[in-house]
Amino acid sequence: MTYDFLPSVAAPLARLIQEFHKLPGIGPKSAQRLAYYLIRMPAEDAASLAESIISVKERVVFCGVCQNITEESPCYLCSHAGRDRSRICVVEEPLDVLSLERTQSYRGLYHVLHGAISPATGIGPENLRIRELLERLRDGEVSEVILATNPSLEGESTAMYVHRLLSPLVSRVTRLARGLPVGSDLEFADSVTLSRALEGRQEI
């Protein structure tokens, strides 16, 4: 989208609109609205936004150990003394680490694959950070790997593929349990989830 045909739009503004338009989920109208909003914003707020965009690109790196997004490598979690170094929890995305940390019931380390195997969109094992995970298991310090990929077709394929590679290296490879989400309705559960929930039932 270019604003060459509309010379009445100031060039810097047109450029800003085009930049917003590149973001996911931002259409031409939203891009215009955001750009005009920024013009009315106090100068220091706008400067802070611009500065934060620059610093996120300059200062954020991938952790050399767990591949999570971090400011310094190794990241906070990987270098934390209180973490259990014998466990690694494997997740698809950095946001999954946040979700698991929110539970406050896991004290081990993480490994972020940055995606899941998805033949439909052409993402194969070679596009994921699986090799880095295998490297971490070389020294034999890790006694359990927890596969916490999504319970979707892509996540399951990834978990099974990774499991096949890991099983000779680690004594224990586990998968997150599948069952019924809190606050849901049995009536709407699918048969695969429900049969797994039955198998994983526990004494109360």
């Binding site: 033949p119 399951e156 695969v192």
Partner: peptide, 8 residues
């Protein structure tokens, strides 16, 4: 669903 060879 639970076997990688068949799933692929």
């Amino acid at each position: 669903r639970e076997d990688l060879d068949r799933l692929s």
